[in-house]
Design a protein around this nucleic acid. Structure first.
Lengths: 157, 157
DNA sequence: GTTTTTAATGAGAATAATTATCATTACCAA
DNA sequence: TTGGTAATGATAATTATTCTCATTAAAAAC
């Protein structure tokens, strides 16, 4: 177990219980990094973080593990328009820190917001029910993103 | 003017009036392709379409023009998780065919939906007002995306 | 506890969408 | 016309991501 590593019984462990997936050190390390940040980390960011506590980690493993987590529904993959994908642990809408994003189209800066969750939940619930039925689509998640100009880029337009 | 080309006075022309931007044939052709489809075209798709009526078009021009249109706020760039970006002309929420997307995480298929627009407009308006004020952010657009499994992929899970 | 089987890993090569460069061309304004 | 600028097309360069494959680690069978 790498130094500084929180160990498996983290808050997220329940999501893996009963699943026939091995919770290896590389996998635990990736989840650990994600669970300890509120930043929007890219695969390479995560690789570098994991590398600090587990230097033999390989970049391709990070990509493989992230894709695995996305398919498991534990991690969400985002595109904020700056070429690289970003990854976040999923928070349920009723949980703390459930948030969405304001994305600046110029500097690609991302602002998290947590306001209007109640209105959102109401709207989303209604839409989800209707849409999943009509299109026979199993909705697992949603993205809401506002795009525009951040305070700084507004000036220099 | 290439054969089969609708010509500049299209419905979208108003968006360019008064702007000091040249409406060249490559640019018009790209807009024309986008205005005549409801598909989610990639840059290469668009290149191939334009190529039919304007064979000397270059792929890099298509990329350049699309980026220009995105910055002008006429075109929206999407990432549906299959590596290539997709482009759509923006429809205002009060317009016909204003829609959002259901995206299958397995096969990456995209379904457009137009339901619940009234609820959406209400929710979005409220959120936009609050957020743009609080974060001093000029909101120009929004994305709503539901992710999950389409009817076919649901079976084979 | 040892062996067998299977899954996961790390290193590096390969891929492919996108971007940058640059000489050429089309357009507008004197 | 002519001069200046913006847009284009061809091509090279970039770079995030995926693929391959030999090696290693973990669980299962014995």
């Amino acid at each position: 177990m790498p130094k500084g590593f929180g160990g498996p019984p983290g808050w997220w462990a329940r999501r893996f219980r009963g699943l026939e997936h091995r919770l290896t050190i590389p996998r635990q390390s990736v989840i650990d990094v994600l669970s300890k940040t509120s930043k929007h980390l890219s695969a390479e960011d995560i690789y570098l973080e994991v590398h600090k506590v587990y230097p033999m980690i390989g970049l391709s493993s990070v990509y493989r593990i992230l894709e695995w987590l996305v398919q498991l529904g534990v991690v969400m993959k985002f595109d904020f328009g700056d070429k690289k994908a970003r990854y976040e642990l999923i928070k349920e809408s009723r949980e703390e820190h459930h948030h969405h994003h304001l994305v600046c189209r110029k500097c690609k800066r991302v602002i998290d917001y947590t306001e209007f969750i109640n209105d959102e939940v109401e709207f989303i619930k209604k839409a989800e029910q209707g849409l999943s039925k009509k299109y026979n689509f199993k909705i697992e998640d949603h993205i809401i993103q506002f795009r525009g100009l951040c305070s700084e880029c507004k000036e220099t337009e």
